[in-house]
Design a protein around this nucleic acid. Structure first.
Lengths: 214, 214, 214, 214
DNA sequence: CATGAATGAGGTTTCATTCAT
DNA sequence: TATGAATGAAACCTCATTCAT
């Protein structure tokens, strides 16, 4: 939102030596831990440094500021998510809509539920960094993959694939979040997967126009 | 989450003199303004008081702390939203699923888009206060109304209406949020309404089982 | 200590009407209650007024400021104490030292232990108002009475009765306080009485010079 | 009393660099000065930091809160006092009661009168922190030493040495306090020493039972 | 007289960030 | 490079006291 320069959000130096790689990772992991234990509100750079076993000064050597650190975590999470979605989308090109929906839903829910605690903690981070262009950019990758897959669906065509993809992702994100925030019991997660397939499938069918066979 | 007592989130005293009613409102409005301009992160009690033209002390006479103030805003927003949804749900009992979907989607999107800026600012607030029981309570009202309406749908029955209602709301919330965060151009909002109807309708049809006519 | 004008510590107006007498008393009692429940640190004028069932404004009508209120409580306590000590001293003029010691100790401990909680709460108040001349003045009365009684002791004379009286009071005050702060179990109080007699008696005997019979 | 955790009263970090040792001391000394000049009531962390020539933040690096700072001063005072009393008690084991009384009184009064101003300022602090277990602990040391010395007195035995020790300390503390609050002129201090010996001696003799020679 | 809304100085505490060592 | 002491702006919140109604 009011995040001024966004270059500031990137990590400061590319670690070339083994030692710094190690340090960076230690800081990163410490940050994740603190985020989980105390939430983004009570995460302080000093605390993270202490947890990582380095001094604050060192932390600032690798992350120019607190936001950059939080952003790094968010980024990794989002990129993993996008990777798995891309993978699912490429693998299922040309398959029927139901199969597509199932694949994407599975990829999405699996990725989010692998570390439900991390996913939840990141909601707060994302809402602070929310509007940031960098975030939008990362998320776009999955949408592009989804669009591309949808276009490959046999026998159907979408009026506005881009928006359709947006809607589908939003629906998945929204319901997964709701389930996470409601506690994400195994039973709920099971229901979520099933209903999300129903929902996406229903939506895709409704959004698609049948193409006359050539 | 770590928000201990919830009494802390309630307003402090009910104004008895005419003067104070005015003051409370001034503070509330000032808070909304500051929230819009600076976001919840940079909203400070001093700033709100200054904007309202009162002293900090006065602010604290009516809102025991910053959270209570933010919560008041969130609460009003959510309650209006729930009101309109309840209204829509009661009015459309017994109608076909498509009509129901249209009604709820319209109510939801209308409510959210009446003050898109406020809606967006409140995302951050909600993520801070999200876990709070009071919030959950308010939101439940709409879900109950939706469930009740769905049960009245002619000729169909749902296996787990409660979860269906949750999914539908989550999908509406998620996609509306996505559109808001993407800028919410009039065109997008139009698309959102249309596609959300498609989505909800598709989902409800998929989730419903046909009942044999008596 | 740094208490500027001390006239400010007196109550503001002498209640002439029945209603105000009642009000003043209600405020006074409320203050005592709050003092006991929350301590002088957390006693606020608003709280006292609320407890008394009047408005802050009314409180300030009768007590010009918070200190005056606290001082009033301390004053009453001290005056009662001095009364009882004076009484004991006058009654036992001319008796043997042991009898005198017993009488004064009993009066002192009784007075302090009648409301041990109040006594303790007032330590804090006294330490804030400690140096105040007004307090010193009140306390002096008991000392004067004690001196006068000691002078009447048959067959003995003190080199510096004034200081002897001071020492005796200080010893009584100090040990009573220690017992109060240690919890003041019935057993301890019993011990206190007994030992205090031993102590005072021993001291008085040591401080007195035998006078040759006339 | 209502001072919850006692960890809060302990110092925050042990300085490792030379610089910080200096800083801690500067803060401590500044605190003592402010305490003397303004009293504990008007001592503020900001003022102390300013006086010490450091920023508030630095102060809070070493003392987690205001109380911890005040407590540190009180602690040092009490510990010195206990040290000197212990010393006096160990040195005079097995000596006659009169010698014992003289030794302890001297140690006590000397310690208190070395910095009469500090002693007085600390009364207020002690009454705030009085109930704290940590304080009780420190003070206990002197009582234990006194008890141990009394037990070693030749030819006498005490029924309840523990209480006797308590009484003797309370009497010393009480009278010293009275003298301090009365201005502590050299003459009074001289009288105090003398009379306190008389008082303690008289008390000990009264409290002791003669033991038959073996 | 009583009310209670309003005041606002002032206090405590946190924490991102810098920089001398 | 690493350290961690120091910074200080800035936030939150309290409460004695006043004064218009």
């Amino acid at each position: 939102m009011s995040l001024a320069a966004q270059g500031t959000r990137e990590a400061r130096k590319t670690p070339v030596q083994a030692r710094s790689t190690f340090t960076v990772e230690a800081i990163f992991e410490a940050a994740v831990q603190v985020l989980l234990e105390l939430g983004s509100e009570r995460l302080t750079t000093t605390r993270v440094a202490a947890r990582a076993g380095v001094s604050v000064g060192t932390l600032y050597q690798y992350y120019p500021n607190k936001q950059a650190l939080l952003f790094a975590i968010l980024k990794r999470h989002l990129e993993q998510l996008q990777d798995e979605i891309e993978e699912a989308c490429t693998t299922h090109r040309g398959r029927p809509l139901l199969t597509m929906a199932e694949a994407v839903v599975t990829a999405f829910v699996d990725a989010k539920m692998r570390r439900p605690d991390v996913s939840m903690s990141l909601y707060a981070v994302a809402s602070e960094l929310g509007g940031a262009v960098v975030v939008q950019k990362i998320v776009k990758r999955g949408r592009v993959a989804l669009m591309s897959m949808l276009k490959s669906a046999p026998g159907v065509v979408f009026d506005d694939v881009e928006f359709t993809a947006l809607m589908m992702f939003a629906a998945m994100a929204g319901s997964t979040r709701a389930v996470l925030e409601a506690g994400a019991t195994p039973k709920m997660v099971r229901l979520l997967r099933r209903e999300l397939v129903v929902l996406c499938c229903g939506y895709l069918k409704g959004a698609a126009r049948k193409m006359p066979a050539v």
